[in-house]
Design a protein around this nucleic acid. Sequence first.
DNA 1: CGCAAATAGTTGACGTATCATGCAGTTCGC
DNA 2: GCGAACTGCATGATACGTCAACTATTTGCG
Lengths: 159, 159
Amino acid sequence: MMAAAESPWLDEREQRAWRGFLDMHALVNRSLASQLQRDTDVSLADYAVLVTLTESDEGQLRSFAIAESLQWEASRLSHQLRRMRARGLVERRPCPEDRRGINVAITPAGREAIDAAAPLHVAEVRRVFIDHLDDTHLDALADAADRVRGVPTDAAPAT
Amino acid sequence: MMAAAESPWLDEREQRAWRGFLDMHALVNRSLASQLQRDTDVSLADYAVLVTLTESDEGQLRSFAIAESLQWEASRLSHQLRRMRARGLVERRPCPEDRRGINVAITPAGREAIDAAAPLHVAEVRRVFIDHLDDTHLDALADAADRVRGVPTDAAPAT
DNA sequence: CGCAAATAGTTGACGTATCATGCAGTTCGC
DNA sequence: GCGAACTGCATGATACGTCAACTATTTGCG
């Protein structure tokens, strides 16, 4: 018999879920990215940063706070902010409490860009993702995501 | 009253599924990429191409066949193959039937690389993804993926 | 205090993804 | 059979993502 806890390869069910997951993400991601590029002035990466900033009280956050919120590396964020700054979407402000730090603030142009992009983006998220799924699938997907990410949703007594 | 078929924003359930899906993919993808970089000589992109080639009869395919199999753009594949060729993982062979075409063949070094990487990669897929999910979740995920991708699995009569 | 360690953020190099463009070779209508 | 349209693939520019340094502060501790 084969070793039980080993991983020779994925069986059919596992393969279907795994490949399906990857392909679904690739499709959805491509759709969203090309829709933003076609219809707006922001990329997916821009969008993520701008949403994070607009959801803050002052429209302004420390770099590390953005990075933590998006689960991005500091370096990735730094590069992204440089590009966004060059296009006038965000600006830097000194940080009084810690002179190593930077406050990143959304500019009026940044607000215009995200306000224009958001409804189109949400519509596309619905079109390519949400609209294909009923509540059962949505919940199952969210549950799966919680498990994979190690979020202790509701029932998880064991181990 | 609000337009019913419109998309103001995602409700809580939709938001949970959508953000969960994105975050799950980001986490899984990072884990797999860094595991390959740490323990092997191939990247995720290399892995995808090499697996496609090994699954072909001759260990050799036309460029467009690889692109179609992976759902990649021709340009993306061309760049990827150039890098892989430079590292000796694949080689080009003339294509008798169509002199525009290229046959891409896996090299012995390519086979060594993929043979060494595959078990480690599969183990990581299990560790970060499969192992967190029971059959119910796997099937739900695969179903969701089929719907989003427009695959007419079993029951889908309407519209 | 004085200095080592930790933290905040930047930078350069390189791999990866997309778009626009280019070009050799093929096909097809006439 | 010849030229236009199409196909197969490559290339250059630019955006994105990661790693490995690096700088400038702040913090902690003897």
